[in-house]
């Protein structure tokens, strides 16, 4: 964590408002190679907005985001032409997994995975297909290569979305509440895939409500409250001995709910 030479992802002084509502109030965060960082917090704490600011799906009002050697500091909520080019380079080094999967409905499972390798990175078709099949095999969906997303369960769609993110050869993968849109019985299959990626040593940022999972796979846990980072430490530190009152209250209510559920 202290070895800055291997920093994959860096965020500094990030601020973002929607109208009068200030969602992010100065966030600093860095991820080194192999970090698995879980971001937890109540709804509206800004954790999803923070994640969406990294590939500039939301353009921050102030602050810097860096991926690998590229960094941008957009001002005034919009990107200049030069910044847009940098952002595209940054996006090519990231994988992003959405809460609602966001697979392209008009393309088959295989086509979803090879789309960016073919039409963004300009790779050869046969090579992209071979790799995509390996990735689909890894998430257990090689047999579904010619199915359309509409014919898959939510869990299957999310696993395809993960394969699509892996096809980017990402230096870091960002997960935006990857299991929140799933029926309870489908959550496990997706968590299993994410866990295996953690074991491979992938760098990941995960926004999640699955506290048990966060505790188990993370190397670091970040607790957000009202646009600030309130806690930042190992799972043992954050879950075992939270420093702030708010984190204590949040965790207490969550573990209670999990127990009841």
């Amino acid at each position: 964590m202290t070895d800055t030479s291997k920093t994959v992802l860096s965020i500094a002084g990030l601020r973002k408002s929607f109208g009068a509502n200030e969602v992010l109030r100065g966030i600093d965060l860095a991820a080194s190679d192999g970090d698995v960082i879980s971001m937890i917090g109540a709804s509206g704490s800004g954790k999803s907005t923070l994640l969406r600011c990294i590939p500039m799906l939301e353009i921050p009002d102030a602050g810097t985001v860096g991926v690998g050697e590229d960094r941008v500091s957009p001002r005034g909520g919009r990107l200049t032409r030069a910044e847009e080019a940098t952002v595209r380079r940054m996006r090519c080094q990231l994988g992003f997994v959405f809460q609602n999967f966001n697979l392209w409905p008009h393309r088959t499972v295989l086509e979803n995975v090879i789309e960016a390798p073919l039409f963004v990175q300009g790779r050869a078709r046969s090579e992209a297909v071979d790799e995509a099949m390996a990735l689909l095999d890894k998430v257990g969906l090689a047999a579904k290569r010619d199915a359309y997303p509409a014919h898959l369960s939510g869990g299957q769609q999310q696993r395809v979305a993960i394969a699509r993110a892996l096809a980017q050869h990402p230096r870091a993968i960002l997960f935006d509440e990857p299991t929140s849109a799933l029926d309870p019985e489908l959550v496990g299959e997706v968590l299993k895939v994410i866990r295996s990626l953690a074991e491979e040593g992938r760098t990941m940022l995960i926004v999640t409500h699955e506290m048990g999972f966060a505790r188990e796979v993370s190397s670091r846990v970040v607790f957000l409250h009202q646009g600030h980072i309130e806690e930042d430490g190992t799972p043992a530190e954050v879950f075992g001995a939270p420093k702030s009152e708010r984190a204590r209250a949040f965790l207490a209510s969550h573990f209670d709910r999990n127990r009841q559920g």
């Binding site: 590939p55 799906l57 595209r88 380079r89 996006r91 090519c92 990231l94 992003f96 959405f98 609602n100 999967f101 966001n102 697979l103 392209w104 409905p105 789309e115 960016a116 039409f119 963004v120 990175q121 699509r164 980017q168």
Partner: peptide
């Protein structure tokens, strides 16, 4: 056109 489908294109680096 679903917003998410466009966002998925943007995060994969499409112009």
């Amino acid at each position: 056109v679903p917003r998410g489908a466009v966002e998925a294109g943007r995060v994969s680096g499409m112009s």
